[in-house]
Design a protein around this nucleic acid. Structure first.
Lengths: 220, 220, 220, 220
DNA sequence: CATGAATGAGACTTCATTCAT
DNA sequence: TATGAATGAAGTCTCATTCAT
């Protein structure tokens, strides 16, 4: 999964929408991402963004009606992208075919999402900070998430439970435990100790083993 | 540990410093907590706080030189409180005496910190949101954390490793995995699905077992 | 005249009105003088004055209804004091009796007013700065000045002109030239170069000779 | 010197820098000059300035970052202009060539600076009032003055002393006496009795004669 | 498309003054 | 008499947004 799977390509193609953008517009977005992620949305000023983008103050509003629209244009797409790998049409088929073991599945997810986080670090940070303050964002995310991901993820979990690979906890609990561990890993890696030079491979391995062990019955 | 241990009382007593506060000052702090946690620091206005507190806007600045000082007066103490249970002078003694098994230890921590999170939910939320934007906060937290908690926690981890209760991962990795799981639990409980009525006891139990299993060697 | 003349004593006695003042009130006035002279009236805050005086904010307003009243209580008396030496009831008699020559008269005035300026430097500075901005002050000063000083000074000038000691310029012109020179001397001494160590005696002598020469006919 | 000398033109040309200014910006400066000179800097409010300029308050801060910057933009240039006529590269040559007698020199200076004071009355008033409260202003003025004027003025004084036109007082003393008289003249004319209709020509003549007499040896 | 001067609402903050204690 | 918490008007300054060029 470190290579983009065919079934994902369609989804991902939606994202490369930097096409119709003016050169100036791209600079605006880049500047906005940088400043929003440093100071937060409410703490940033459009004039500062314009300055960093090397653009007149008015130019921003030629492309985005309001400051908030600029934010959403940055943050909304990331939600879809974030979720994309899980939004597969027929999940269990995928599972059967490609991930015979939970371990391979987990490793694929972690590696893939880590690349994603590395690439979109700043935007993800903005997303995390702003989602509590913008109802539309939150609702859109919740809807997308529960529609596209939740049931499919539950299916996958039950699939591995049925196969006896993991224990029979409630699916939401299982999911919470997995996501907590992965997100905790990513946050530590990119936010808390971005400069610490650690052995990424080894940490990933520990993390995967922790999840697998955690979800496996201890033999008495 | 759901009861406050004697060795904690001193530490905790530092916190009930709402003494010298005017009635109005208390109202200001309450209003500020509510509004900051809803809209974020930069998105809140002092006039709104004053209004909600039923106080003239000038009154805020009689007690706090700046809006930011108001924020810090709210958020700084929570850092110490958050860490308090781990800032024990002689940790291993405590461990020997009171927590023969890692399981008991984990349960104590989770229950205790859950009560704490329940009580200080709003302030914790503010803390989490603002810490990336305020260097002083971040540095103070890092210092306090590494001084008071880190080494002691590592000691505890090594203690349980020596006893053969958990496997020999690097202490920082072990710690990351434990904290991720606990924080993930608390965030799910209080932030993501605060209204979902789930069986807290059972979820705690699952969480503890997940951590313990995760850190225990699978018997081949 | 470096000693206080008998006819002045009455006038001067009006000034030592620090009698009925509370200890705190005195401290307030001292603090106000210091701060007003450093930052100007409009640039000073009553709270700063209270702080420097070691007094509660409200205490100032127990003694002075408004900030401006505090200013006037400081500045108004200095006007009288400043003018006092010239406000003699029967001036020409004084002149005949005590100052046979213009030179002696000038020297007396300069020495005496220099001591005055040295003592009341800060208050005089406040007075000079504030007089353009406070109509009452300006009017009161103009009235006092023209009533008590102007005619008497003109009389003295004409007296010395009649005696042939100085040339027959218009009295206002003569007065302007004398006052300009003296005030210029005092401002240089106390404001522009207060730290320069110069020979005061010699400078006074030069100044007097300049005025006298300036008002004497050059012999062809 | 009532006509602008050629060597001055360059210096003076620096001043007509109202070029790049918006129409509104010019109105702001005009309003600010008027209000500052009436109420002093600290006693004026930006809202009042905006109102008198017929401009939104925000517009002031688009052109000047702070209220103080507005003050300095008004007051700083006047310092150079005030001094300009004395900041000539080779002063004694000028003296030799154009002012054979001290009298002509004095008359030229007085007339020229009187026109200047008449034209820039309000700004000069602001300058005089504010210089004690703004360290930067004071230091900049002292530096400019001592660099550009002092030595040259001393040279001129010694030039006239060497020619026997004036007596051998120390140059600083001589300068103090001359400036006191001239400044006293200007202040009387424009500040103390601006409405009194006096014969300016005659007063100038008296003032010049006073200075000349004052600095000339009385023949015994 | 792009500019940047202009706006005016509203942000944070100060301050003279009042008043219950 | 003295205090100092409280006030609210006013101050300086910021900022998203508009619009003529």
């Amino acid at each position: 999964m470190s290579q983009v799977e065919p079934w994902l390509q369609e989804l991902l193609r939606l994202n490369d929408e930097e096409e119709k953008m003016t050169e100036k517009q791209i600079k605006i977005v880049q500047a906005a991402v940088e400043i929003f992620s440093q100071k937060g949305f409410a703490g940033s000023s459009t004039s500062e963004i314009a300055q960093k983008a090397g653009v007149a103050e008015g130019t921003i509003f030629r492309h985005y009606k309001t400051k908030k629209e600029l934010l959403l244009s940055i943050v909304a797409p990331i939600m879809t992208k974030l979720i994309a790998p899980f939004a597969v049409k027929d999940f269990t088929k995928v599972l059967d075919a490609e991930y015979p073991s939970m371990e391979q599945y987990l490793r694929a997810i972690i590696v893939n999402r880590m690349e994603f986080a590395r690439k979109h670090f700043a935007v993800l940070k903005i997303f995390l900070h702003e989602i509590p303050f913008h109802t539309e964002l939150r609702e859109q995310f919740q809807e997308t998430f529960s529609k596209l991901v939740l049931e499919k993820a539950y299916k996958a979990i039950r699939h591995f439970q049925a196969e006896g690979q993991i224990i029979e906890l409630p699916a939401p609990t299982t999911m919470r435990l997995i996501i907590s561990t992965i997100v905790g890993f990513l946050i530590t890696r990119f936010l808390l100790a971005p400069n610490a030079d650690w052995d990424e491979e080894v940490e990933i391995e520990h993390t995967i083993q922790f999840i697998l062990n955690g979800l496996t019955l201890r033999k008495a």
